[in-house]
């Protein structure tokens, strides 16, 4: 019994790592640029397709394709921010949200048009491999995703703490107006934050490819949970997103085991709802709450 419980916890934490991986980029975008980017899931979908095609056409392993996709998505994110969200920076909330929803429709259906609705999966060298002690083996791709989440979290944390650009990002996230007065080019900071956020989700897409299949609506499976995690961890907080991811992963695993898998989502949404209402700054106090 307890052995199974340990397995449940291990798998919950691994899943939490995947959630964290996806949420790290979102917490930057939502926390700093203040865009409720529902298209985050579609960014993930696109990067999964990119990684899929690199593997199918040229045999590039998803872990190698990170090197191509991360910079590509940095640019892609900046283009999206420049072309769609920057013009409506000062527009009411509703415009921003519906611009993002429009983007969801366009990207999802572009994928459908180009690649059809098929579920596409690949079997790479790593995708079937197991590591760990006998009885508690875990899938190598999940472990790699977890490690990647940790390192991206640490990398972003130190970037934001210690570099000039990072500090500017943090300042902009805390108070846009004040940052502007301090001579920070907030528009440029938004571009960079959006770019980094997209780049993170690009990396996430590559690392997910050995684990999941990709299809045009795959993003919808991840995007809401990512928002839950970002709010749970506090906007713009890297550590918060990471720990928030782990918490949600654990909650899911435990409720899946003790209650039922079909209620998992409902349970974390209810937790999310109560948290929003009774502690809207997130569990770890956010760096940039209004």
């Amino acid at each position: 019994m307890s052995e199974i419980l340990i397995k449940v916890v291990i798998n919950g934490l691994l899943m939490g790592g995947i959630y964290a991986l996806i949420s790290l980029g979102l917490t930057l975008i939502f926390g700093v640029v203040r865009i409720v980017n529902f298209a985050h899931g579609e960014f993930l979908m696109l990067s999964m397709y990119a990684s899929y095609w690199l593997f199918q056409l040229w045999g590039i392993d998803p872990y190698v394709s990170v090197l191509i996709i991360a910079p590509l998505f940095f640019v892609f994110g900046m283009i999206v921010q420049r072309g769609i969200f920057q013009p409506i920076l000062n527009a009411p909330e509703v415009s921003k949200i519906f611009a993002a929803i429009g983007l969801v429709m366009v990207l999802q259906n572009l994928a459908l048009l180009f690649w059809k609705g098929d579920y596409r999966a690949i079997k790479t060298i790593s995708s079937g491999l197991l590591i760990g002690p006998e009885g508690f083996m875990i899938g190598l791709p999940r472990f790699i995703a977890f490690l990647a989440a940790v390192s991206i979290m640490l990398g972003l944390y130190f970037f934001i703490k210690n570099t000039y650009t990072g500090k500017a990002i943090r300042a902009t996230g805390q108070d846009q107006g004040a940052a502007l007065l301090m001579g920070i080019n907030t528009k440029r900071i938004f571009l960079i934050a959006f770019g980094i956020g997209s780049s993170c989700v690009g990396i996430a897409g590559c690392l997910l490819m050995p684990i999941y299949s990709v299809f045009p609506t795959v993003g919808a499976y991840f995007v809401l949970v990512a928002f839950v995690i970002v709010v749970l961890g506090g906007l713009g907080s890297m550590l918060g997103a990471f720990i928030g991811g782990l918490i949600i992963g654990l909650v899911e695993a435990l409720s899946g085991y003790f209650i039922s898998s079909t209620y998992k989502e409902a349970i974390y949404f209810i937790i999310f709802w109560f948290l929003l209402i009774y502690k809207p700054t997130g569990l770890f106090g956010s760096v940039s709450q209004e």
Partner: peptide, 9 residues
Amino acid sequence: GTILILVVI
């Protein structure tokens, strides 16, 4: 979706 984006912008 494109119409939606254009309208909000």
